[in-house]
Amino acid sequence: MTELDRTDRSILAAIQLDGRMPIAKLAERVGLSETPCARRLKRLESEGYIDGYRAMLSRRALELGVVAFAQVRFSVHDRSLSDRFEREIQGIPRIVSCHNISGTADYLLQIVARDLDEYGIFMRDVLRTLPGVTAVESMLSLREIKRDSGLPLP
């Protein structure tokens, strides 16, 4: 990977805000002509600085009114059990993020649901039945203050 210069960081910052920005507009924003801008963008993609492009969907429009954070605990810390848990959660769309964490819990999950009834059913029928899970503590989001707005650039 090459060292990021100011122009590379400007390109990354701009596409984090709008991944569909046309090259012409991106080039203008970062002070380059289109061809060098396109070459830099391709290099940033090929060097792994850009994982991909996607749309940010509206939870409100999709009627996903509940955002919950669940701390999941295991009583037995077995590698194969953790691997099975991690494989299974990959296939559960309601779990929008999962982090293996330090502290009193083993994993922190972010989960979305239509309402509290649906979340309760998900907890009972899915989350608590996953391999290794012995305890789950839920925290419900009352209001989102800041949404994933991209990574800070050095």
Results as ranks from 00 to 15, higher is better:
1 M>T: 03
4 L>T: 01
4 L>A: 04
6 R>C: 06
9 R>F: 02
9 R>I: 05
10 S>I: 01
17 L>H: 15
19 G>M: 05
23 I>M: 13
23 I>R: 11
25 K>L: 12
27 A>S: 14
30 V>Y: 05
30 V>D: 06
34 E>D: 15
35 T>I: 15
38 A>E: 14
44 L>V: 09
44 L>G: 13
45 E>Q: 12
47 E>C: 11
50 I>Y: 13
54 R>M: 05
54 R>A: 03
58 S>C: 15
66 V>S: 05
67 V>S: 11
68 A>L: 05
69 F>Q: 10
73 R>P: 05
75 S>I: 04
75 S>L: 06
76 V>E: 03
82 S>G: 07
83 D>Y: 09
83 D>A: 11
83 D>P: 07
84 R>P: 04
87 R>N: 04
87 R>A: 01
87 R>E: 01
88 E>D: 04
91 G>W: 01
94 R>C: 06
94 R>I: 07
95 I>G: 00
95 I>T: 00
96 V>Y: 01
97 S>W: 11
102 S>C: 12
105 A>Y: 07
106 D>P: 12
112 V>I: 10
121 I>C: 00
121 I>N: 01
124 R>Y: 01
124 R>F: 00
134 T>N: 03
135 A>D: 10
136 V>N: 07
139 M>T: 06
144 E>S: 06
144 E>L: 09
148 D>Q: 11
151 L>F: 15
152 P>W: 00
153 L>C: 07
